[in-house]
Nucleic acid binder design. Structure first.
Lengths: 120, 120
DNA sequence: CTAAAACCTCACGTTGACGTCAGAGGCAAG
DNA sequence: CTTGCCTCTGACGTCAACGTGAGGTTTTAG
């Protein structure tokens, strides 16, 4: 499929797909005239990339994880990188939970004084 | 205390503190000569700001939350904003958990093929 | 065959949270 | 008084993940 269809099917912009290629996250084939041609599994690939972006990984961290998807080769280094990223994400989850709890107690304390002025 | 000490005690840069002031997140007093003077509770304030930044809130979202800390006034709108931010954070937590789980199953699947080539 | 739609490659613009440098003024110690 | 560190105000630089044209080619529909 060409770039427009992939964009439509994944919900990301054409520009973003070209950006992924620039970062070597998703390198498509080319027709003789130079147009990009993507395989079916590029759809899943893009979704994966989006999830990792959403998890806060920069493209420099995603790029070395991609060879696995491409060649299917699993090196110990790759596994370790995956585990490291998992730890990073778990750390971020813990941070967010702490922040949420802090925010929740702010809300509890504040709602006791709703409409008035709370002591400081 | 002056800006250098606050920076040292909070671990954020002097530049960042001036940036917070620019965004009206933390507006200090001034000496007659123009030097910034921070009160003791600015330390907690900065930590709070850092946590909210870490939670992904932009300064435009943090700024309207700050009057509470300053004046102690709790309006219904403020409470609603706090609750909205809490919901946002909880959404991000859920996303991260999903991403972590996906990553974890990638790791499980991959480690079964460690050193070899996995089927595709 | 032609016109529209989709695609191509530069290449500059944007946003947020600062980094960094320049040039000048302020402040405690010796 | 001067040395040395801290602070001040601009103001430009950075990085990531794209957005947004400009100007030209390719593919597709009628």
């Amino acid at each position: 499929m060409r770039i427009g269809e992939l964009a439509a099917r994944t919900g990301v912009s054409v520009r973003a797909l070209r950006y992924y290629e620039e970062q070597r996250l998703l390198v498509p084939e080319r027709t003789p005239s130079g147009q990009r041609v993507y395989s079916e599994n590029a759809v899943d690939r893009v979704r994966m990339i989006q999830h990792l972006f959403a998890a806060g990984l920069p493209s420099r961290s995603i790029e070395p994880l991609m060879p696995c998807v491409v060649t299917g080769e699993v090196t110990p280094e790759l596994l370790e990188r995956l585990r490291a990223e998992r730890r990073r994400i778990e750390g971020r989850i813990d941070d967010l939970i702490r922040t949420r709890d802090r925010l929740a107690s702010m809300i509890d304390a504040a709602s006791a004084y709703e409409g008035r002025t709370c002591p400081r």
